[in-house]
């Protein structure tokens, strides 16, 4: 139920019901979602989508830090 899927914002427009409506690309599948909770998100941002709403914007810095940690782990395991 709390499943959430990452996608990338393609465009964004104001909407009476959804406040902000965006088209989001999930690896080629495109859906319309509300940005009501991440009004600051811009085109190109990666967002986490749950039940038609973006609930978080991906932090590129934190993602890079986590991936660097994996690289170090992989190097250490070799």
């Amino acid at each position: 139920m709390c499943l959430a899927v990452p996608g990338r914002i393609l465009d964004k427009r104001a909407d009476a019901i959804a406040t902000w409506l965006a088209r989001v690309d999930f690896d080629g599948v495109i859906k319309e979602v509300s940005l009501a909770f991440v009004p600051e998100a811009e085109v190109g941002d990666h967002v986490l989508i749950h039940a038609g709403f973006a609930i978080a914007v991906l932090s590129a810095e934190e993602a890079a830090a986590t991936l660097a940690e994996f690289a170090a782990l992989a190097a250490g395991a070799r």
Binding site: C2, A16, T19, S34, A36, F37, A51, G52, F53, I55
Partner: peptide
């Protein structure tokens, strides 16, 4: 409107949007 805090804001927005409209 069921679910945990992940789903609750969307349900709240639906109520607010219905009220606003």
């Amino acid at each position: 409107a069921i679910g945990f805090e992940t789903t609750a804001p969307g349900n709240a927005q639906a109520i607010l949007s219905a009220a606003s409209a």
